[in-house]
Amino acid sequence: MIVATRKPFTEIKDLVSGHRKILIVGCGTCVSVCLAGGEIEVSILASQLRIALGLEGDDVQIDEAIVERQCNREFLVLLGKKKNMTDYDVIVSMACGAGVQLLGDVYDQKPVVPALNTVFIGIEEGPGIWAERCQSCGNCVLGETGDICPITMCPKGLLNGPCSGSRHGRCEVNPEIECAWVKIYDRLAARGDLERISKVLPPRKNSRRAHPAVATHEAYKRRFVKDEKIV
């Protein structure tokens, strides 16, 4: 999932200052799971803003909403059926950066501001702690590396490792962490699949990472690619 953390309160407060009618929109998917922008976090931020702005004597109206996924247009259109979006002076999005931008695209007459910092694609390591696992490189090599991502887990992002700085299973860049390539070696060895490590992975095709990237499903291509005819 996409992992995000909440921005400092003062930063959010500055983003909404001067506005009277504020709508806070959470997202029910990734950021709910990482306790950054779900229903409870929307409620917490709304209360905090009502208290802080109320104490300053501001007469503000702060409404709360949650959508299933802010990165899906359909859910944002549904939101517009429940809330009169043009009524608000500012919309605070508690989704990842993608969600904020789509909300801004769909309701482009009003400023949409982010309440979260999107940090990475990762996993839950335990209650309240998440860890990065993938950098969406566009050419997944996990099949060759014992399901351990060398691009993310090795600070140098080496596709063929370990480097000569690997010491007793630790990384030379940061001895606090384990060497990703030692872990890859150990896992492949445990699976009896060690010959994979002698395979040289080709250099990364960085051109794949041209931004902004677009992904199209094969079955839907004709809708988006010019001159692609179905009949």
Binding site: I40, S43, I44, S47, Q48, R50, I51
Partner: peptide, 11 residues
């Protein structure tokens, strides 16, 4: 008890 309940009381 959720943090949201606590803040609501103060609000």
């Amino acid at each position: 008890i959720s943090v949201a309940h606590i803040l609501k009381a103060f609000e």
